[in-house]
Design a protein around this nucleic acid. Structure first.
Lengths: 243, 243
DNA sequence: CGGACGCCACTGGTCCGACCACTCCCCTCG
DNA sequence: CGAGGGGAGTGGTCGGACCAGTGGCGTCCG
């Protein structure tokens, strides 16, 4: 008495669609536990192997979460859960596209800064300030980067849009930055970063959305421009080494 | 003589990381064919089942593509390939987050419009115009929506940033629009859409980035505002129906 | 009586081997 | 020389077995 009808695509693909549909229709809520793999497979009339592949695919997308020995659960479907995969994109995108990703980041970062200027609370502003000063207080590059990331994260959070914040998080991920920064540290990058961060903070404190937007755009735009120059003249020619 | 060392996480997860690393390091190029599942499994010292799950996960992310009878291939890793999954996010995100997604879309759409105003070619501008007029020439909602989407797609493409265009594509996908539009068609939505589209087109033709930005923001912002109002007063109360 | 302990049923994780469905190339035949 | 057919090889599916954690239930000790 199973539904045997829809015979398009692979069996696994169908299973994926079915599970997605269940979630979209509200039959499965965020955080809820799914039936066991064996159960689900039996219900859809497929083998456990195929069902496992379907679950694995949805796990990779951040929709499901498997806990060994306990069961499979729907994630809370927060922006962060689902957009984690976006980080993979940034990590795998070929060099020429890094400029595009930075352009997207510049747009979103400046929008977030503008929103934050209007909405930020005094407590959060103090937190932003803390990371700003903490960056100067240490020489450990790791720690500096950590405060750098936190600085931007606080601003994104203050914008009050979780989706935008999650997107920016992926775009600013550690690995992504590492790729862009490579070879840049010898310059006066730190001094410049500090200056630009200070400008953003000043705009936030003044509750000036337009100033915040401009400062954030200039900040990201600087890296973007540097990268663009570097791509146009690949003097090192460390590109595409294949057999 | 296999590498047996890294013993963190599940075997499948390790396989996923290994394949991603191979791509990141350039050992596997876009479009290239991978060794067979059986081969790969043997090389990493795991079973074919686990390797299949790893491949399935990367397939879901748009990194790999399996062709029955032929082999597994790395996708071209274009923005569209990798961001297709972003559409799943929009499709599965709970109601309250739709407003956030629309806000992101508004930001990106207006940025794209501004860029397009500066970069658009006469040919593409003509294409934009074609979709603008074609929307009025028919009464078929399906066709109207198709031209609507194409209108925005052309503008996004004219902005010259594939990543941004792919992002907007996901944010404007048919299913996404269907969810937002539900119940809105009785109003003078079409007339309003036409007016706003005309305004965007005018700004593009005038090569005026700021006007284009404002027109696009107003266009998306209208839908956004409407949705926000509707969410604050869920009079119909068609929310969360669960057991 | 209360709580810590340990057992064990159940869940996901891994592996194996078999077979099916499809592709593509090479060889044969007209 | 071309079209056709066959077969080796590929991903897709299946079933079943066993391993490895989890969590609740019952026991037993203090």
């Amino acid at each position: 008495m199973e539904e045997t009808a829809p015979r398009k695509g692979t069996v696994t693909q169908r299973a994926i669609e079915r599970i997605k549909a269940m979630i979209a229709e509200g039959l499965l809520e965020p955080g809820q536990r799914l039936p066991t793999e064996r159960d689900l497979a039996a219900r859809l009339g497929i083998s456990r192997s195929s069902m496992r592949e379907a679950i694995r695919a949805l796990t990779a997308l951040g929709v499901l979460e498997a806990r060994h020995g306990s069961g499979v659960y729907v994630t809370r479907l927060r922006a962060g859960d689902l957009l984690e995969t976006f980080g993979v994109v940034a990590g795998l995108s070929p060099g020429p596209r890094l400029a595009e990703l930075l352009e997207v980041r510049r747009v979103l970062e400046s929008a977030a800064a503008a929103l934050a200027a209007a909405r930020i609370t005094p407590e959060r502003l103090a937190e932003v300030e803390r990371h700003l000063t903490a960056m100067d207080a240490t020489d450990d590059p790791e720690e500096i980067l950590a405060h750098d990331l936190a600085f931007h994260r606080e601003i994104a959070a203050a914008a009050g849009n979780e989706t935008m914040a999650a997107l920016l998080e992926s775009l600013s991920s550690r690995t992504f930055r590492a790729r862009v920064r490579r070879g840049r540290q010898e310059e006066d990058a730190f001094a410049r970063t500090r200056r630009e961060h200070a400008a953003i903070h000043r705009a936030l404190a003044a509750r000036d959305p337009e100033a915040a937007r401009a400062a954030a755009a200039a900040h990201v735009g600087g890296v973007e421009q540097w990268l663009r120059d570097r791509l146009e003249v690949p003097s090192g020619a460390t590109e595409t080494f294949h057999s």
